[in-house]
């Protein structure tokens, strides 16, 4: 029973990615063949162009830019919510959640004219809008970590002779490192995987991997390239995720 449930859950999680992985290495694959009738790496070799490399670099810098800005801002926001008296605290909490209530397409449609009129360069504009999109997530991560974090830790450290700065650095650092990693990762994903904001605000000047995917997917007989691009978009964050979680998991086991 337990094994069956486990297998069902694994199938549920894995099934959608199976055809993508098969398509990425398929040569020809037409119905009703269950498996590709031939295999080839044409999808991946078509990725080896300077164009794709540039798009990957844009995606990477967009993801990092959003994460580097949204993570500390989320932390500051979460600290403020914790430290403020109830009324302003509730207001800040509301503002931090507000972008969640606004679908990305609606946010973009409205802000585009203002960004153009202010001569905000497209990469900067995309980063700004995505930071706002990512802030609820980063703030949420720090909020839940801070909820489990107790000031008494710091007080104990200070009574043991640590200076206030030392106490904050050492105690907080260790307690909040996990939350920071999660927040950074989520914010990175917002920038790395975005399509509609980059398309409408980036105005073609910012060509990221998802944009390449969008135009590849709009053509017939492009399944191999589309699937290979999908794999190329998913792999780097997966590696980052493994890098962030595996050491922690090992530590926990020890």
């Amino acid at each position: 029973m337990r094994v069956i449930l486990g297998c069902l859950l694994v199938v549920w999680i894995v099934a959608p990615m199976v055809p993508v992985l098969l398509w990425s290495v398929a040569g020809q694959w037409r119905a009703p063949a269950v498996l590709p009738s031939s295999y080839s790496l044409q999808g991946f070799t078509a990725l080896a162009t300077p164009d794709t490399a540039r798009a990957a670099a844009s995606s990477l810098s967009l993801g990092l830019g959003v994460a580097v800005i949204a993570t500390p801002l989320g932390y500051l926001g979460a600290l403020a919510v914790r430290a403020l008296p109830p009324m302003p605290s509730r207001f800040v909490e509301f503002v931090l959640l507000a972008p969640l209530a606004i679908p990305p397409f609606a946010l973009v449609m409205g802000i585009n004219v203002a960004l153009l009129r202010l001569y905000v360069s497209p990469p900067l504009g995309v980063t700004l809008v995505l930071v706002v999109t990512a802030l609820p997530y980063t703030a949420f991560m720090f909020r839940s970590a801070l909820a489990g974090y107790d000031h008494r830790f710091e007080e104990v450290a200070r009574s043991l002779g640590a200076s206030p700065g030392q106490a904050a650095r050492h105690v907080r650092y260790h307690l909040l490192a996990g939350a920071a990693a999660r927040a950074f990762f989520l914010a990175f994903l917002v920038g790395w995987g975005d399509y509609i904001t980059t398309l409408l605000i980036g105005g073609g000047q910012l060509r990221t991997l998802p944009l390449l995917l969008g135009s590849a997917a709009s053509a017939t007989g492009n399944e191999q390239l589309t699937a290979a691009l999908s794999v190329a978009i998913i792999l780097p964050p997966l590696i980052l995720l493994a890098g962030l979680t595996l050491p922690a998991a090992r530590r926990k086991r020890q």
Binding site: V113, R117, L199
Partner: peptide, 27 residues
């Protein structure tokens, strides 16, 4: 070459820039 998924996207960009009074268009 700027690839787009649908041709009206390009006009949309031009119109948005014009709406914002931009004379140094990206298209």
């Amino acid at each position: 070459r700027v690839p787009i998924a649908d041709t009206p996207d390009a006009l949309n960009r031009v119109l948005s820039e014009l709406q914002a009074g931009r004379g140094d268009g990206s298209v």
